[in-house]
Every structure is written in structure tokens, then in C-alpha cells.
Design a protein around this nucleic acid. Sequence first.
RNA 1: GCCGGGGUGGCGAAAUUGGUAGACGCUACAGACUUAAAAUCUGUCGAUCGCAAGGUCAUGCGGGUUCGAUUCCCGCCCUCGGCACCA
Length: 944
Amino acid sequence: MKPYDHKDIEKKWQQEWDKQGIYKVSDSVLGKENYYTLVEFSYPSGNLHVGHWYAFAVPDIFARYKRMKGFNVLYPMGFDAFGLPAENAAIKLGEDPKTWTYKHMETMRDQLRSMGAMFDWDREVVSCDPKYYKWTQWMFNEFLKKDLVYRDVTSVNWCPKDQTILANEQVTDGKCERCGTEVVQKNQEQWMLRITKYADRLIDDLDPLDWPHAIKQSQKNWIGRSEGSEIEFPISGSEKKIKVFTTRADTLFGVTYVVLAPEHELVAELKKGLVNESEIDAYVQGANKKSELDRQQSKEKTGVELKGVTAVNPVNDESVPVWIADYVLAGYGTGAVMAVPAHDERDFEFAKKYQLPIKEVVIPNRIDVKNPPVPGKKSQERWNVQAIVRNPKTDTYLCMYSKEFKWTTFPMGGRESGEGIIETIEREIREETGYINLKFVKILGGPVRAEYFAAHKDENRVAYTHGVMFDLVDETRVPLLAEEEGKHEFLWLPKSELVYPRIVHAELNDWLSRWDGHDFAFVEPGSLIYSGVFTGLDSEEAKKKITEFVGGKLVKTYRLRDWGISRQRYWGVPIPIVYDPAGKAHPIPVEHLPWLLPTDVDHTPDGTSPLARSKELVERTEKIFGAGWRPEVETMDTFVDSSWYFYRYLDNNNDGVFADPEKIKSWMPIDLYMGGAEHTTMHLLYSRFWVKALHDLGLVDHNEAYVIRRNRGLILGPDGEKMSKSKGNVIDPDAIVNRLGADTVRMYLAFMGPYGTVASFPWDPNGVVGVRRFLERVWAAQEKVGTQPTEESLVRTLHKTVKKVSEDIEKFSFNTAISAMMIFMNEFDKQSTIHKDDWKMFLKLLASFAPHMTEELWNTLDEQESIHVTAWPTYNEALVVDDTVTLGVQVNGKVRAEITLAVDATESTVREQVLAIPEVQKWIDGKEVKKFIFIPKKIISIVI
RNA sequence: GCCGGGGUGGCGAAAUUGGUAGACGCUACAGACUUAAAAUCUGUCGAUCGCAAGGUCAUGCGGGUUCGAUUCCCGCCCUCGGCACCA
């Protein structure tokens, strides 16, 4: 036997497979169903790291398995080749971005080939190839026709020194990462895509997808649909109105001021001639300087009043002051809010800081669980006060137990008309309990509404109750009223025993939360109060009615913004637009596509878009469209490239269409899409939008591209930290492949933990050696292959292994599949021979994990065909079911013995046998067996 | 703060979704082979008490449901990831 020389074997078979073309994928194969497995294509950064191996080599196991299972599997590979790093290299090293990119792709192709994956390289897609971006441009024009593309002004990061727009990732701590200059916000006209038009569908269509819950949730939050009202506040002495968006129209009576975002269009007009105009200017300028991120990071709220300007609350004609503050975002809702400090935490904080009034208009609404309202009884509205009387000496609280109704209450009573809260409750305490020397402590906030049935009056009550706290000064008591005498027992209870519903007040939990006296806004829905005719309504109902009453509109708003795709960069898809001499934009007709990226561009930044420096581009434009015509000089965001690349794998050479509709129909939607969790709200959302847009254009017949989505985890360095050069914990896959082989590396990655769950796994240099040891044992076992029948118990193990490995691969539990194969080898080591056919069966299981080594072993068995085109083995059902099973025997829930029984044993046949086991006898110890539980194939449990 | 994952030996992890917790691998220790080392092979390996048989405790913490809970319910703690003034 030759030693296991992975270098030889891997090189040999990679060449051989190439020669035989066993990974060429046809669009249809008779009798086979198409199966499309996809992993996000990668950026050609120049070097394959362990992350790439994890991303591509492990799903290759799955793809190979599916193929052996009889599917026509497509598992393609390509490059997301436009992007910033190539351009940075051009600026820094003076290298041409295209040369740089193609050089890196070449290196990476070699490295990817070393994986021994089943990529069909004939289908490769490269997003910077004009044959590809021709169709990116074509789609842009199709979207333009359908009004999905428009031009708008948005703010961008601008470095005044480098005279260039910066991506968010090029800004660190508000400074340009290249030169350290403070970055400012600049308004810039951009090409926008109307992704917001699809906001509802992007949310609603998520439900049926087999995607991780986490992604669905994040996308929903990211889109941030919220339903509310738009309400207009007229400005006193002006024709203008401030339109606000609110989700809490029910709190309209509680508005005490209105706030505009600093960028709000009305600010410039309203500030004119105000006493504090300069202060306002300064504030607006300050806000402009800060990026959105900075603004959100400062915790302290700031603002400035538009002194002299007032807005009119449309619901009650009250005048309220108008402020500007940067906690209000120009880009969300209407850029203006009505402030209700009593019911919104941010408004509350702001109102406290600037001493603005706080008006409570929504109160908690409780329905007593113990004495709920009785239908049919008459209902009475009451204003009540409850007293929480503390005895400071014992730290206990005064409660009254009613002998008649058998309930415990605080001293309480109804307010007579005209009577004050304190006055009322002091009277009630005196009359009901006799205590007279009390010290007032505080009122526990506003009233709480509660509905209950008052048994002593046989009527339903809607009570608005205040809570008041007192300390007992001394125990002096006066005689009770005659009618109160003997009705109650008085209890002094510690705070821990003040629990609802033991104390029957439905308001109790509200008192307890207000107890420590710290103020907060009541942001929950509740019942309206001090709200004119709307008083008593609950929040939900009031939202609609109040909006209607003031002539407002019920609207949906989204956090999601339209997608700005313009980039003032070189290395991207040129936006296929030209401007006529009057400056009007025209799409470039399809016969001139691809609209090529010019090559005569100097990459030194000079404040213009690089394409603007191309002479050739202008000449080309004038030649085609006429004198005075000018080209668009912007390129597209690279997320556009990756929004549709999966169609191009299906038909990557087609010059007449982005992909043949028949081919699209036969492969799409993608059966399985694996990738990184970092793409949750960008790539996965953009491409969903893109596919829906193509669908609406009638170009594809599916509405979603990815049926199953799984996110993979992350491989960490041996120290458990993220790999990084500065930490010196980077694992170079090339070196390990060289030392231990591709089969070992891909199999170890699969063995580290479950795939398809977001977790992180530290690379263990010893662990990978362990996998290599396993492969060595398999290699050595070829010596034992013969024509003698295999020992029966090993055959059984083999068939069980087939079952287990198949099931585990389906679940992406490659780690346990490998473990099952290890168990088989452990069994096999005890035997001296195995029959050739059984050995082949095992090799097939291992083939998708260790494609090179198994091919070599397969080949030595005089097989002509590649192992990878053979069929996945099937197991014999009779061989995987055992006829006996070992069960634990529990006595009072603790396992005390084991028993091996026939699988079809029944309770009646085993009962005597189980009770006779000495260990069981010992624990029963003559006691009565109360219960005998027999769960076939699971457990026996005896209760004594 | 909000949303979403997670917390199981010295480590990576298993556990048919309520049924004998820790499969498989790594590490460590002991032994065999060797002049020696590496490699390989054999054995031990959750904690604790015990000479042993065996007992007790153990799946982040505290409760609950159940004959039985890593799994279900309630309340906490910790941790990782994402988002964060969204009106």
C-alpha cells in the first residue's frame, strides 16, 4: 500500500475531473430535477482565507450529496468584481483597477480550484465584464421606463480636502480615513431606486420563506413600517401649516409644543425677523455639520425655540410654541413632530430640560380581575381616592379587611363635588379608620381608570382613582362613625404583601410602579382623559376618531429610504444615461450597450467624478448622440451588480437577453442560498427588491429568488478572537492545504460545528490533525477490502451510517454526519475484512466530504466511472432496525437499572421481568408500586 | 434601550424536540512499541464521597408543570450579533 499522499492525489484528480468534464452542468437532464445551490459570490480581494473555504467548500459537500441523490445540481462560482478596493489600489499604487482585479481573480481561481469543489467554471460570472454589465445597464433602463428610477437630492459624506465623496466605511470618528480632515455633509443629486414602493411587499412576502427568523425580523425592523396619522398644525398669523406625523393621535390633547427638524423647509421662512434668529442659524449650522450618525450618538437632547412663532393645535385651538431640535429627523415621517411629553420618552426628556409643560391625557385603564364589571348592571362613574398609609416605625401599611365582602382594601372613598383630593382622603381615613395624625407624603401621579363591579352597591363602576401616600405620625384615633363600626379588621402589612389581587384594587400595580417617585412618560396605550368629547375612549379607537375630527390622514410610514445608487467613482458600472444640450437626461438605447467604462482616466482624486476626466467618453457621446451631448459620469453602487448575478449563471454568454427565460424557468427560484449574516439588510433586501421589480416587468415569473436561506457562522482564530493580521491569529488555508490536504481542511471545517446557524468556531490546530488521522485510517483500511462477506454487525452499522449521514446532510449537520462515519470506522477497526461492495458503499458516503481521496480509493477498485457521478447508497430498512433495545429503568424519576428487551415488548410482558431486577428490587424495598410507566423504545419508570 | 441568537466537561460539540445527559473529535494522563523522540496502538478522562459495591450533585441562576425537564412555562443573570432619538 502506498502512503496517503494528498498532494499527488489531489492534483491528479483535479486534472482528471477537468479533462473528463464531470462538473459540466447541463440545463436539463432527462429524469433529473434541477437543483440550484448558491453561495454569495466573492470580491476578488486577492487572497482566499479560511472564511472563503468555510463559505464554499462546506456547501460543496451538500451540492455533491444532492447530485448523488439524483438531482441535476448547479453550484456556480463567480466574482463580485467592481468595488472600492480596486480603485484605492489605483490611487495608492498607480495600478489600473482592471488589471489589479483580473490579476486577483486569477490567483483566487487557482485557490478555489484547490478546494476540489464541483464548480462549473464555464458558467463563471464576473460583474465587471462588459458582457455582464451590459445587462445591469439594460435593467437600469427598464426600471427607468417603469418610473422605478428618479433623480433626487440626498446628503453625502464629503471630505473638503480630498474633494471627494466618502462611503460610510471611509469615515472614522467623523474624519476622513485618508487625510483626517473633518467630514461634512453635502447635498448631492443622485439616481435613486424606488425600493420604498415595494416596502409592503418586502415585509408581507417574507412569511412563507424558509429563512432564519432572525433575518425576517431584521428586515421587517429595517423597513420599519409604522401606521399613524398626518395632522396639520396651522401657524398663527400665517398661511403655512406644519404637518406632523404621529403614531399617537390619541394624545393630541396632550401636545405642549411642536418640533421641526433643523433641515425642515419651513425653518428658513419662520426664523426671519425673530428675536433669536442668530441663535437659530447657529443651531441649524451646527446640526448640518454633524453627520446623521453623530447626531444620533449624542445623548443629550438640544434644541432652540422659534421665539414668537406659535402653532395651533387643531383639536382644541390651543397655541403651542414651535421649536427646532435635531432629535427630530428630517428624513423620517414629515420631519416634524407634535410633542407630547407626558406620553413620549424623548419629548419628556426634552420638556424637562427646557421646562416645557407636561399634560397627561392618557391614563392606565385596568379591569379588575377579581370583580370584573357584570354585564347588564348599571354603570356609575366615580372619582375616588385611595390612601397608602405607612407606619414608619414598623414599615407596614394600613389595610382593611371587609368581613362582609371578604376583601382587603386601602382606606378609600369617593370625592364629593368640589372637594380636593387630600381633603377627601383625610376625611375618609378618619371616618373609616379613626386615625387623625397623618403626614401627607405625595400624590402618586395622575388618576388611574379602572372598571369593576361594586358588590356593596350592586353596580358597575368606572372609577378614576388617585393614590395618595401618608406617614402615620402617632396612633391617636377618634371613634369611628356608627355605620363603620365593626365592619373591618385593620391590618398593617409589609410592602411585600401588597400584592394584587390580594389587595383588590386594580390600580395597585400602577401605585407600586410610581412608588419610588421617579418620573417617566406613560407610553403605553390607555384610556383618554381631559380630552373633551373623546374622554373615556381607549387609545386605539381615539386614534382614528381624533385624526378624522381634525381632518388628518391615516398614513403608513416607513423607516426604509429609497436606494441611492449613484457613486462618483471609477470602478463600477457606468450609469447608461446621456444629457442633451439642454441638460435633459436620456437613457442610452440598447444598441449602444454595453456602455463601456472609459480607460483614459487618471485616478488621482481632483474633486470630480473620475469619469468626468475621460476625453474618450465625451467624444463617444458626441459621436453617437450629437454635438453638445454629455455623458453621465456616475457609476452604480456594487449592490446593484449582486442583485441579479444568479440569473447570469444560468446563461452567462447570452448576448441577446440577460438570461434565456426558459433557463430561468428551469432553475429558478434558487433552492438553497447560503451566506453570511452581514448581508441581512442590504444585499438580501436589495436583491429581493430587484427580483420583484423584474417580476413586475414581466421578465421573470417568480416573486422571490431564494426559497431556503441559511446563514453560516464564523471561523475564529485559535485564540477565539476574530482573525486579523494585527492579532497574528490568521490561519492561511494554502499552507494547511499544502501540509494536510484539501480533503482534510474542508472536512475539518464541516466537523467544527453545525452549519447554517450563526455561531463562531475557533480554529483548533489539533482538531484539524484529528480529521487527518481519520482519513489516514480510512486510507489504511483499503488493505482489508476483499470478497469475504462482511461481519453482520458491521453491515448493520454500515446501513445505520448511511441513514444517519443522509439525514444529517439534509439538515446541514455535517458535523454529526462525520461523527457517524467515525463511529463506523471505529467498528470496522475491530474487524479484519470487509466486502468490496460494502466498502464502496462507505466510500460513497465519504465522497462528498473527501472527494479526492475517495476517488483514488474508488479508482483502485477498478471502477471506470468517477465515484462522484454514482448514485447515493440506499440502506436496507431491515438492517437499521434492531430487534432488541436497551432501556433505562427509573424508580421515582432516577435511573437505577438498565434492561435489554425485544423492541416489540409490551408492558404486560415486561412488568414482572423489570420488577425482578435486583437493582430495582433494592430501590422498591417492599414498597407499593403506585405506577408502572412503560414507553416502548424509550423508558420504563416506576413510581413507589 | 430594542430586536435576534446563545449559555451543556479542560476545549469544539452531541442528545431521535419531554424519556438512560456528555455521542464523535481535541487536549490531558497512564501504558505498549522505540536506544530516544515523533508517529502509531491500548486504556482512563463531568464534579464529589467511597478501598469497593455504590451513592450524591450536575446542562447560567431561582421557581413551576410532569412519573420524568438541556428540552415546556414564569422570573432573573451573563454573553455574542444587529439596530438604535423612527415620533
